[in-house]
């Protein structure tokens, strides 16, 4: 039973730069929450504050009700996995894992037992005597994870742990990490700028921008019902079209659509998979390029003023460059003043 609670935490660096701005979050027992955002959104700073490597300028952080806000890292019940692995290269795998246990004064036979168990857990049984430089990137990352897990932390912190690995390995490792996390039911805070990672692993996603929360929701909700145009544009591929609404009709170049909202500027958000195309002599858009991915096709479209849109189609062979088409959105959302005002 471990709950992490972050209340009104801010971090202002000299400058002054506001890295984290009045941030609050509660991570439930056994939950995996992803902090997702572009570089400079404050997600890593936030994670480092939970780990104790940065001091918050203000706010409160508790684990199971115990105030940890001002504890040094070595006295927090957290375990951090770093992006660069940060394995100690002068020690072998066993010594890397045993270091923390030794500091806790465990007898040697218990240390050996625990280290072997955790190596088994991450699929590296028998690797204890290897030097860390003899391991591949993926194996190093597993050792880094094992080094945190062996101490049975209440909260596991993962700082872009797969960023330095190739795509294939990244996908495999994130499944493994998710399996381990669910098996151990360990409360986890995970930082990433990869939306795939967040969508694949998280129970909930926190989308961050400029040190603030844009949206906190389940991955499917964040994907299907983004609350702000930023979230809409950041998660998955999204067509964002700026235009104006007048008399209940949104227009941009030759493209028009009825939307029942008051007059004024608006941003329309349509997923490529929700944008159907219909060939027409005098269409609203012109096909720029057709890409066939085998399972589906992607059509790049230009509106009359050069605005580029993408549409996912089942039969790319029906379209060709230069062709005129009409746009038939099956689902969309409209945003005004950074808030959603319409959804269909």
């Amino acid at each position: 039973m471990s709950v992490l609670k972050i209340t009104d935490v801010s971090k202002i660096f000299a400058g002054p730069t506001v890295a984290v701005d009045n941030f609050s979050l509660e991570v439930a027992n056994g939950e995996l929450v992803c902090l997702l955002g572009p570089s400079g959104s404050g997600k890593s700073t936030l994670l480092r504050m939970v780990g104790g490597f940065e001091r918050p300028t203000s706010g409160l952080m508790t684990i199971d009700g115990d105030d940890i806000t001002h504890l040094p890292p070595e006295r927090r019940p957290t375990g951090m996995v770093f992006q660069s692995h940060a394995l100690w290269t002068h020690m072998n795998v066993f010594k890397n894992l045993a270091f923390g246990l030794k500091l806790r004064g465990l007898p040697q036979d218990q240390i050996t037992e625990k280290v072997e168990a955790v190596l088994e857990l991450v699929g590296l049984a028998g690797y204890g005597t290897r030097g860390v430089n003899q391991l591949s990137g993926g194996q190093q990352q597993r050792v880094a994870l094992a080094r945190s897990l062996v101490l049975e932390p209440k909260i596991l912190l993962l700082d872009e742990p797969f960023a330095s690995l190739d795509q294939h390995l990244r996908e495999r490792l994130r499944e493994e990490v998710r399996d381990i996390q669910q098996r151990l039911k360990i409360t986890t805070l995970f930082v990433t700028h990869g939306q795939d990672e967040a969508l694949a692993m998280a129970d909930r996603i926190v989308v961050m921008r400029d040190g603030r929360t844009e949206q906190i929701d389940r991955p499917d909700v964040v994907y299907r019902e983004p609350q702000t145009p930023f979230v809409a544009g950041f998660i998955g591929t999204m067509n964002l079209v700026d235009g104006a609404v007048s008399n209940g009709r949104f227009t941009r170049a030759d493209f028009g659509l009825d939307i029942p909202i008051p007059d004024g500027p608006a941003t329309l958000a349509i997923r490529p998979e929700a944008l159907d195309l219909e060939a027409a002599e005098t269409g609203e858009a012109q096909v720029h390029r057709v890409t066939d991915y085998g399972t589906h096709g992607l059509v790049d479209l230009d509106l009359g003023d050069g605005t580029r849109l993408k549409a996912m189609v089942a039969h790319p062979d029906l379209f060709s460059a230069g062709q005129k088409v009409n746009l038939k959105p099956q689902a969309m959302a409209a945003y005004r003043d950074n808030a959603r005002v319409y959804r269909s």
């Binding site: 104790g52 375990g79 951090m80 770093f82 101490l151």
Partner: peptide
């Protein structure tokens, strides 16, 4: 010396001198 290595050691419970 990689600062992350030092932070990782703090993380597993080592004080600054250790």
């Amino acid at each position: 010396v990689d600062r992350r290595m030092e932070e990782a050691a703090r993380d597993v419970g080592a004080g600054p001198f250790r």
